[in-house]
Amino acid sequence: MRTAGWGRRAVLFVWVLFALFPVYWTLITAFKQQVDIYDGPRFIPFVDFEPTLQAWRTLFGDGGGDFLGKFANSVVFSGVSSLLAVILGGFAAYGLARYRYKYGPYRNDDLSFLIVSQRIMPPIVSVLALYVVFVNLRLLDTAFGMILAYTAMNLPLTVYLLRTFFEAIPVEVEHAAALDGYPQWQRLLRVVFPLAAPGLAAAFLLSFFFAWNDFLFSLMLTFNDAQTLPLYITSLNAQSQPLWWLISAVGLVALVPPAIVTVVLDRFMARQVLIGGMR
């Protein structure tokens, strides 16, 4: 390790304080009572205020059925829709990368553009149309509807991202596997997917984040059963005195699933380094 100058260290120290303070603040707020929050700033637990588990009891105790349901909704919708988007998008992207299509005047690049163009429109425009469709198909406020909506929202992203990943795999590697005695499905399983693993992981991660952080679809397409975490947080905010201690606790819990997904998938993305010697 090189020794950094004292000046540089001081700057970095200040920056770290600046960056970490909001996290710290959220953390201690989650252990406060309403009175500690509205009675001037209090910084240090046990000194400034007496920590309490009130927020956590509310979330996970008997009265927290509401929270756990929404939390489960968020996890299931984000997870399942991202998985679907990666699998379906993966096949579409592989097709676009490896086969030449001809539909009237459309070629691979046009098809690719058509798919990506789904995301050009601001979501607020499409969500209104989606609302009408959902009403007619009776998908409003259903888990199936929400998974469908998130999958559709994320597909353009995964197709676009994965196409470049598949194109970067030399076609000769697949040819080699064919001559080595592996049928098409086995080639995908044994060669293509492992080599595209960093891309698949990145696509899943981005899809998951988009779905996890979505507010708009949830707002327009759900009202009770299929509500997700962001909407729940909003409901806590909609009072004369927002329940900051509870909001903070929910916020902390909401950090956990994306963090887990990131840590798990990061290892796959790091394999990019090994695959550098593809040619």
């Binding site: 030399p170 000769e172 590697v173 040819h175 080699a176 596997a177 064919a178 001559l179 080595d180 005695g181 592996y182 049928p183 060669v191 492992p194 080599l195 693993a197 394999r271 090994l274 695959i275 550098g276 010697g277 593809m278 040619r279």
Partner: peptide
């Protein structure tokens, strides 16, 4: 896959993983 013909490619096409 059933021809039992082997090929060495110009870019070697090894399985990098």
């Amino acid at each position: 896959e059933r021809r039992d013909i082997a090929m060495v490619f110009e870019n070697y096409a090894l399985y990098p993983h």
